[in-house]
Simulated assay, not measured.
Amino acid sequence: MTYQVRIEGTEHAFEAEEGENVIAAATRAGLMLPYSCRSGTCGTCKGEVIQGAIQYPDGLPPAIDADEEGEGKALFCQARPVSDLVIRVAEVREAGDIQPQRLPARVERVDDCAPDVRRVFLKLPRDKRMPFLAGQYIDILLRGGHRRSFSLANAPHDDELLELHVRHMPGGIFSEYVFTNMQAGALLRFEGPLGNFALREDSDRPMILMGGGTGFAPIKGIVEHALHIGVARPMHIYWGARSRQDLYLESLPRHWEKLHPSVDFTPVLSEPAPEDEWQGAQGFVHEQVLADYPDLSGYDVYMSGPPPMINAAREGFVAAGLPADRLFYDSFEPGRD
C-alpha cells in the first residue's frame, strides 16, 4: 500500500510506501526536507501534519512531547503515514542532481590527529563521482544492516578524496575497526550525500559557525567552500573541546584567521589540562558565543556536535534573538550497538 504526501503551499507531492518514513519517501522522490540525526532526537525534521494520520515505530520520539503531538507537530524522520497526508515543513527544495548513491570506496590513508580522533580519507573508483554540498554527510554501510554517519570534512571543489573525522567510541562496531584494524586499501561501502546542513550562499548575513568535538568536520567543509567561492561576509568560528589535544586541527582555523580578514577563530575548552597552560576561553562553547554576541538577530548560525550541545545552544540562541529559520545544525547522535 502507498500513501500520497502533499506539502502545503507548494506543488510538491510524493508517495510513501507502507512503513516508510516521510523523510525517506521525500528523498526517494527527489525532494529534500530538513533532517539531521534521523533518530528522532534532534528535532531538525519537525513539521506539522495538516491532514491525515501518522504513527511512530517505537512510540513518541525524544525530540517531541505529547503537547506538541496534540498540536499536530510531527518528526518526519520517524513518522510513518497511515493515510494520505498534507504536511507543512519549514523548507523544501529540489535536490536536483545531488541524489544519494550507494558507492564503494577504498581507504587511501588514515591519519592520527588526537588520541581518540583519526582522519580517514576515502577514494572513489576512477569512473565514479559524488556531487555534494559542503556540510553534508555519508553513511558507512556495515554488516547486519548497521550504518554509521560521518560528516564530509572536505569541500566539494576538493573531492579527490573524501575526508571523515572519526572519534573512537569504545566498543563501537566501526570506530573500533578504524582504531585497530583499518589499513590503507581497505574497501568500504557507503551511501551519500545525506542531510541538508549546508552553506546558504544566497544570504548576506554574517556567520557564526560552532563545532563541538568532531563536529568541527562539517564546519571545516563549509568554511573551505565559502573561502573558495569568495564569500566575504564575516565568519566567526568557535570550536568547543575538553582539552587542548582535542583541538586536533587547531592550526587550520588559525591559518584561515591569519590569511582572511573576514575570519575569526575562538577555541573554547571545558576541561583544560594543567599542561595545556590554557589562557583562552573556558566553559561551554555556546555560552562563549552568547557572551560575545548577546544579540544574534542579525546573524546566520551554523552548528554541529553532540545533542546536548545542540539543544542547549538552540534554546540560548533563539532567546538571544536569532530567527529560528537562520539556525542551521547537524546533531551528532552516537551509533547504538
Results as ranks from 00 to 15, higher is better:
P81Y: 09
I140F: 04
A63F: 03
V82R: 14
D97M: 06
R38Y: 06
V117G: 11
L60V: 10
R129G: 05
G40V: 05
R109C: 02
G145A: 07
P104Q: 03
I50K: 05
H146A: 11
E108M: 08
P34H: 06
L31D: 13
L85D: 05
Q136R: 12
H146M: 09
P115V: 08
A66Q: 14
I54A: 07
P57A: 15
A26K: 13
A90V: 01
R93H: 11
E68W: 01
R129H: 11
F121K: 05
Q51Y: 07
G70A: 08
S83H: 10
F132V: 11
Q51H: 14
A90L: 02
K128S: 12
L124R: 09
A53N: 13
G52D: 09
Y56V: 10
E69I: 03
G72L: 04
E68Q: 13
P61D: 07
C77R: 11
V49M: 02
R28M: 08
Y56Q: 07
K73W: 15
R80D: 01
M130C: 04
Y137C: 11
A66H: 11
E48S: 05
D139Y: 01
L133R: 15
Q55P: 01
Q101A: 12
A29P: 13
M130N: 04
L141F: 02
K46S: 01
L33Q: 09
R109V: 02
